[in-house]
Write a protein that binds this DNA or RNA. Sequence first.
DNA 1: CCTCGAAGCTAATATCAATAGCTGACCGGA
DNA 2: TCCGGTCAGCTATTGATATTAGCTTCGAGG
Lengths: 189, 189
Amino acid sequence: MGRQGLTKERVVTEAGRLIDEVGLARLTLTALADRVDVAAPSLYKHVDGLPGLRRDLAVLSVRELADGLARNAVGVAGRDALERVATAYRQFARARPGLYVASLWAPAPGDDEHEAASSRALEVVHAVAAGYGLAGDDAIHAIRLIRSVLHGFVSLEAANGFAMEQSTAVTFEHLVDSLDAALTNWEPR
Amino acid sequence: MGRQGLTKERVVTEAGRLIDEVGLARLTLTALADRVDVAAPSLYKHVDGLPGLRRDLAVLSVRELADGLARNAVGVAGRDALERVATAYRQFARARPGLYVASLWAPAPGDDEHEAASSRALEVVHAVAAGYGLAGDDAIHAIRLIRSVLHGFVSLEAANGFAMEQSTAVTFEHLVDSLDAALTNWEPR
DNA sequence: CCTCGAAGCTAATATCAATAGCTGACCGGA
DNA sequence: TCCGGTCAGCTATTGATATTAGCTTCGAGG
């Protein structure tokens, strides 16, 4: 009906909440429209269809992830930094499960805004590697290792991939230990 | 038209090929029906709708993954076993990208067939951990570590998550090295 | 107070999943 | 041989959903 005062900002934010609640698979323009109290086609005034919305969600999520990582990494280095960043990463995935999945969509080539957000997140991990004295190609591979471990863990955790009831907190400590050891005893190849 | 000689087996196999080609997101009963040359509703004679098909794909994929891992792990132990299993895991994810994603869907509680297939895959990883002398809770955590690293790496690789052009093969070697070190110097907690 | 852009609407179309109900091909037994 | 039943496959239909087209109206700036 009357003006809703809707903005792209709010549409995307609300979509983020929606996917956290119901899962990415059930992100639907109809459901989102209901949520912001507008007819579905009206969303097109703010967002470029479902593909556009997904892209916007990806940007939002990477920004929030980058913020979370950066906030926790300030003023620490070495193992402390690794631990803080790893924990922040896991926390983000647990607190925003829908958004987290969206953060994995790679930027389209030429999407500067999206790429900038990704770089910012990567930068934090890069700093962690630097704290272990890694640079150049070694840093690249180390970053990939860190991301693999963290992403693998949180996504298996989210997918209920760890059937046994043993504590995932303990597993996570092992993960951090292993990463710390790998970065400490890094062998260039 | 005339009898098509279609079987559940073939429907699911063909669905597996389809998702490898076009991606899980574009798995559609319509597309699958076209592929096997049948009208869409006819698929319901073989498969329990889209949810049922997805579940069948999950079972198929876990079986193929388990087969691949087991085939490569026979007769080796320790680092050799780790390397072989890790490589087989990565190979599966690269050769069958659609199926690989389906392999991540956790079995529904009480789905014995699905759970059995999952156990078989887990068993291979368990054997790898055993090769490093790990048992009990340590083995559980070690398995989770291995799965996290492997899944994280292959899924980031598949999602084009590694933007830089540096060799992913080298990264993978670092991954295996790190896992080997972690398992060798395992510290119970 | 007029204008115009933007925000919202309704109506219509296309794609897809799913259900209902029909048909005819094959198989086994009398 | 023929008869009947099962079951694979069909067409028709309904209900979601995305998307487009085109209309309406609010509200801010001159």
